[in-house]
């Protein structure tokens, strides 16, 4: 009897251990491999120029009238600010969205793949009134355009 119970406990224990192993495998290994390209340093940088340097290889961008940044004049709720960026130029490689007045200025970077248009749309958080800057990389050069958004209630909390 007692051996039987022990055997049962042992089996239970090994099943639990393998489940933990699988959880670690799923939780720890996968993101490391999948997210190897996630530019942590660029997202952590509190300075927009520094972040651009890390992310895109250049710290300054040329003002361009071919980029349109669509965002509301006044955002009543800073937690949800709809932003659309369209770049009317050839060979758009990536579009980055910056909010220089946020604690972490880099919000998102969209890398365009095969056949993608220079267009992206999302919703962002803004801590306070400031510019939304779209930085477009096209043909190895950086272009930017900005739009000021007045935020009445900040969305970055405290």
């Amino acid at each position: 009897m007692s051996i039987d119970i022990k055997r049962r406990l042992f089996l239970k224990g090994s099943v639990a251990a393998s489940a933990v192993g699988a959880a670690i495998g799923a939780g720890m290994l996968t993101p490391g491999q999948v997210l190897a390209a996630w530019p942590k340093e660029a997202f952590d940088n509190k300075d927009m120029a520094g972040s651009m340097e890390t992310l895109l290889g250049m710290s300054s961008a040329e003002e361009s009238g071919e980029i349109e940044v669509k965002a509301p004049e006044i955002a009543e709720n800073g937690a949800v600010v709809p932003v659309t960026i369209s770049a009317d130029m050839d060979g758009v490689e990536s579009i980055a969205i910056y909010a220089p007045n946020n604690p972490s200025p880099l919000i998102a970077n969209f890398v365009m793949g095969a056949g993608a248009m220079g267009y992206c749309q999302t919703r962002i958080k803004m801590g306070k009134t400031g510019d939304v800057v779209g930085v477009v990389k096209a043909g190895g050069k950086l272009y930017k355009a900005a739009k000021e958004v007045k935020v009445t209630i900040g969305g970055c909390g405290g």
């Binding site: 949800v80 890398v111 993608a116 962002i124």
Partner: peptide, 25 residues
């Protein structure tokens, strides 16, 4: 099997995120 878009995000994207894009297809 063609990757048309890769988006890298920070926590600065709003809760329950919305995304729109255009590409050939």
């Amino acid at each position: 099997d063609r990757t048309v878009l890769t988006a890298q995000w920070s926590g600065g994207v709003s809760k329950n995120p919305y995304i729109a894009s255009m590409f050939k297809g």
